[in-house]
Amino acid sequence: MERLPIPKYVFNFWFIFILIVGFLPPLILNFSVLKGLISSLLSLHTIFLSILIEALPFVLIGILIAGFIQIFITEEHIQRWIPRNTLMAVIMSCLVGALFPACECGIVPIVRRLIAKGVPIHAAIGFMLTGPLINPIVILSTYMAFGNNFKIAILRMIIGFVIAIIVALLISLFFKGSQFKGSLHPPSSSINTQTPSFITKLLNMFKHAIDEFFDMGKYLIIGAFLAAFVQTYVSTKTLVEIGDGLSTSILVMMSLAFILSLCSEADAFIGASFNAIFSTPSILAFLIFGPMIDLKNTIMLMSVFRLKFVLTLVALVATVVYFSILILSAYL
């Protein structure tokens, strides 16, 4: 039995947090500053809880699906379903992701369970990238947010799909194996030869879901806290003011997508509100990058994968999105 190691930064983070909250106010000794600080902390708390309340239903659905995969789907199934050819496997997994409605935090436990069941890493990543980005709700909310215009919605889906395939293929070049944190024991053949009853299986599915929740929960909470912290203390105005010229504005919108950690069904409205400040390509970068990678789900990925893998994945997605949009911007 392995315990999940918690990265050192968690301790540092809370240490710094307690330091700021506990010791800074008396040092400043200024009533109005203190009042402002308390007020902003309450706002921070409200945003933090709201992100959590918004995400929890999706995370619960995610862990239940993960539990379902663990109990009801065998390695043999996976072996039969996933094509041997890397390109075919990636395209198939991206298609499955596109048909599968999920959000970027609920999909992490599912991906982890799929990889544990023997799905190759590139296929799992392809699925993870298209899952939250391409689904009916996202298409419709994007369509509506941009003035009943299908152009942005369709571009978002098509470019996002191609980018997901490219990233998954790159992952297949660089990484083999599960990339899980800690060592993954080779899957042992079933010890128990008799098949348990359906009820037992169902119960086990829920038990796995519970374990999954306690594995993921803390990362979701830290991710939500960081996203809320950024929303409370970092002004988008400063970011927006940097964004001058095409290449920087794409970068600005991508960083905005990363730090805001919005749910992919709601981000179209925020994206649209920047429509007049920024050009279409940078808005598209915001809409494509956000559902694939953001602050909240990066923290959650760190709970599953090696730090090196997570950082490479984030860098790869960011680079591919950035250059694809930059190159395509001439035609948009």
Binding site: R3, A116, T195
Partner: peptide, 17 residues
């Protein structure tokens, strides 16, 4: 997880440790 009848998931905290 002996009662799962499936390959055991090793990198998983079952709250027993």
């Amino acid at each position: 997880c002996h009662d799962t009848g499936q390959a055991c998931c090793s990198h998983h905290d079952h709250g027993q440790s």
